[in-house]
């Protein structure tokens, strides 16, 4: 469905130090710098897959999505999406895709969202019966009700984002590029959005590439992740394997039924945190059983949980490792 080979996107960016003298100098002798936003990445994505595209700020994620959706022209390499070259932006391609950006909106600000849906129906040439059916489905799934008939400017962020999704999906795109679709939303709305995106993917077999700084989005939606940092690929595989590879340990949390001397805890393994009534250990997978058995036998355990380390920590460690391994290159968003 999506094939990316040796993708590079380099920008020339003007640079100058602060101050009037520098401003005048830059007027006659502008200095530019090459920013390597994406610096040679390769990957393929199968139809219907849900892939998380991860990386720190300025890693090149959004740039890659913009190249895939035809907004940006790459500096080098080749990209195809369902057999189309995105940069040609032919109508057949644009009808198959949609880029949803949490920080950009397509809804007409002073009109109700229903007007934007109607506009998209006309522009994307969606037959009326298909449009009515899909709109009814999407409206029901997202529990929009009468919201679609209120001026967009009067809707809350969460309501607007739900309507943005409907506007993005009325033409039934087969490839969805989602850039931070849950940004700024409260936790319950994030759950609604994730659930909706998964159901859309399962029902229509749409391919999904998602970027998000909320690891819960990625964990809930994406069995596969591609990690990019400073424009280069640092991991491509399953999320589970990534967690095991970067942090091959388990988090074990014990809750005590009575007070425990903190001094004794280090005997059982590495203590991540310890506070009144609770302690968290980070233990190698192989020694979890043994260590838990010892704690249970020795200390007043009321309850315990065994988890993988938080994804945020896994990613943070991965980024610091890949940065240490890479030669310094310029980064951009």
């Amino acid at each position: 469905m999506i094939s990316v080979k040796g993708l590079k996107k380099h920008y020339q960016v003007k640079q100058r130090p602060p101050g009037l003298a520098a401003a005048l100098t830059a007027l006659f002798s502008p200095q530019t710098k090459t920013v390597k936003a994406v610096d040679g990445i390769d990957f393929d994505i199968e139809p219907g897959a849900r892939v998380g595209f991860l990386g720190p700020n300025g890693a090149g994620k959004t740039t890659t999505l913009k190249v895939l959706s035809g907004l940006l022209y790459q500096s080098d390499g080749s990209v195809t999406v369902d057999g189309h070259v995105p940069q040609r932006r032919d109508a057949a391609f644009l009808k198959k895709i949609m880029l949803v950006m949490g920080q950009k909106q397509q809804l007409l600000w002073d009109l109700p969202p229903s007007e934007t849906f109607e506009l998209n129906r006309a522009i994307y040439e969606v037959p009326r019966p298909a449009f009515d059916q899909r709109l009814a489905e999407l409206t029901e799934l997202l529990e929009l009700g009468d919201l679609v008939n209120k001026p967009t400017r009067t809707l809350s962020l969460g309501e607007r984002m739900k309507c943005e999704l409907v506007a993005a999906l009325v033409h039934g795109p087969r490839v969805l590029f989602m850039d931070e679709p849950t940004i700024g939303l409260d936790v319950s709305m994030q759950v609604v959005m994730r659930d909706f995106i998964r159901r859309y993917n399962e029902k229509y077999g749409a391919t999904l590439i998602l970027t998000s700084h909320y690891m819960d989005d990625v964990a809930a939606l994406c069995p596969r992740v591609i990690v990019i940092d400073k424009g280069q690929l640092s991991y491509d595989g399953s999320l589970e394997a990534l967690a095991k590879k970067v942090r091959p340990e388990k988090r074990v949390t014990f809750r005590w039924s009575s007070a425990v001397d903190p001094e004794v805890l280090s005997r059982f393994g590495r203590v991540v945190s310890s506070q009144a009534g609770e302690a968290v250990f980070q233990l190698p997978q192989a020694s979890v059983k043994d260590a838990v058995g010892k704690v249970l036998a020795t200390l007043p355990v009321a309850d315990l949980t065994v988890e993988n380390p938080p994804l945020e920590e896994v990613m943070s460690e991965l980024f610091s490792r890949s940065r240490a391994a890479q030669k310094p290159v310029e980064a951009a968003s």
């Binding site: 109508a91 002073d110 009109l111 109607e118 506009l119 129906r121 006309a122 522009i123 040439e125 001026p151």
Partner: peptide
């Protein structure tokens, strides 16, 4: 030719919504 046809088919809706916008910006 298909691009022209597509544009002509969409134009009435685009104009109708454009008029609504112009009125909203009164």
């Amino acid at each position: 030719m298909s691009a022209v046809g597509r544009t002509l088919r969409a134009l009435p809706t685009m104009m109708k919504i454009g008029v609504s916008e112009a009125i909203a910006y009164r």
